[in-house]
Nucleic acid binder design. Structure first.
Lengths: 235, 235
DNA sequence: GGCTTCAGTAAACATATGTGCACTATAAGA
DNA sequence: TCTTATAGTGCACATATGTTTACTGAAGCC
């Protein structure tokens, strides 16, 4: 047995490895608060983590690999949050207010992770962009399923529900991006605004006439309200 | 006079300078299609432009300075687009469809500029983020003014109109980000989706009850529809 | 035509980078 | 207790970076 005396300050090999792996990840996350992922060098990360550059390769094949691990981490906690939020809906009075609250809290507690996602969503590393996009699409899909529980939305086309879920996710993710770079005192106002925006979007729901994709040619009959848009009062 | 013979292949000094300046900008833009701004080196840019690294300093103080110039360029063409779109509203039948069309076309013709904005909006360079944010806020403000021409929105609080304009801008900018990295064949579907999303948002407008900010304490009376949100059908 | 201005060059610098190779120390396993 | 596996070190390398310093050549101006 490796551990002859059970002194708690003796680490098993795995424990130690896991510890420095985590150090690498969180060092990167720290650096990411000031720089884009692509501009962070392997050596910077190891310096920040207190190990030699060569030891890096015991944990990751290279920076891109580490980046993917970060995406996993970030979406891991996000999934936890969403699961909590979903199970919460049984005893709510106002879904929107509550959801926004949860998001704000999550950003506050996982600022670096959220900034990472918001930043690298359109960042310079193709692979990261793709993985993040995929994860977000997954969220939207889950949300679309949840939405069919609402009677107003049950009659909608599947594709329309997708479109709606996508819109909601987009709004929230944008808000997360802005929250991560907001000063604490702006946080409240930002939260109130996004709440209003979500509310406004939801209000439109009963007025939406979901229809199967038009097959071809021009639509027949009078133009629907939702296809005409608003009319200006004056010229 | 510098130009003794009026041969067209003799450049004036200014012309030449402007030409390599432009080369620097467009080279960077080209590199930007594959990498984040922060990860692009000054030497890379000069290599791509066909000049020596030292000559760079005849045009910009450093990469950040060049970045700011790029933001100017990008928003320059954007402003042109918006102006065109606004003056267009006198003779339209469907604002939304038309606007989306204009945006899609603009992205197609200025893909690199638009990608730059979408990418650096939350990118690694603080200064760039701030300038881009400011410009976008400006757009939202203008839009908010335009919106007051619509009778449904004239009665709204100024802050609610801002909130609404902000939402529209956010939706469009997100869409631009996705358009810039979409394959040509996905473009149509993306366009259709964003059109629907905008329509859905607009539909909610007549249902919105804009009120002055609540001063304090809890709201009195029955909860408004827009504060209750949707209710799920089953537990 | 001759003097000035200035966009661009050439060489050099100190410093940073990613990665390969040989090594060491210690936990794990026999 | 002796052997093996492996996380981490140290050194070396080729190559890349931002910036300085002294320069060249042609356009601009009198």
């Amino acid at each position: 047995m490796g551990r002859r005396h059970d002194h708690s300050d003796i680490e098993s090999r795995m424990e130690r490895k896991e510890r420095t792996r985590h150090a690498l990840l969180s060092s990167t996350l720290r650096l990411l608060s000031k720089h884009s992922f692509e501009s962070i060098s392997l050596r910077e990360v190891t310096r920040e983590s207190g190990i030699t550059p060569t030891a890096f390769y015991r944990h990751f094949e290279g920076m891109e690999d580490l980046g993917l691990a970060l995406v996993d981490e970030a979406f891991g906690s996000l999934h936890d949050m969403v699961r909590a939020a979903r199970s919460d809906t049984s005893t709510y009075d106002d879904v929107i207010r509550r959801s926004v609250q949860i998001v704000v809290t999550h950003v506050r507690e996982h600022r670096d992770h959220m900034r990472f996602i918001a930043r690298e969503r359109y960042g310079g590393v193709r692979r990261l962009r793709r993985v993040i996009r995929t994860e977000l699409d997954l969220f939207a899909n889950e949300l679309a399923v949840d939405l069919s529980r609402f009677p107003e939305l049950a009659g909608w086309t599947r594709s329309d529900r997708q479109m709606f879920a996508d819109l909601l996710v987009e709004i929230v993710v944008s808000a997360v991006g802005r929250l991560t770079e907001a000063h604490p005192e702006e946080e409240g106002e930002l939260a109130r605004r996004i709440e209003k925006q979500l509310r406004l979007v939801v209000i439109g729901v009963p007025g939406w006439r979901s229809q199967p994709e038009k097959r071809s040619g021009q639509a027949s009959g009078a133009p629907m309200a939702q296809e005409r848009g608003l009319e200006p009062s004056a010229k």
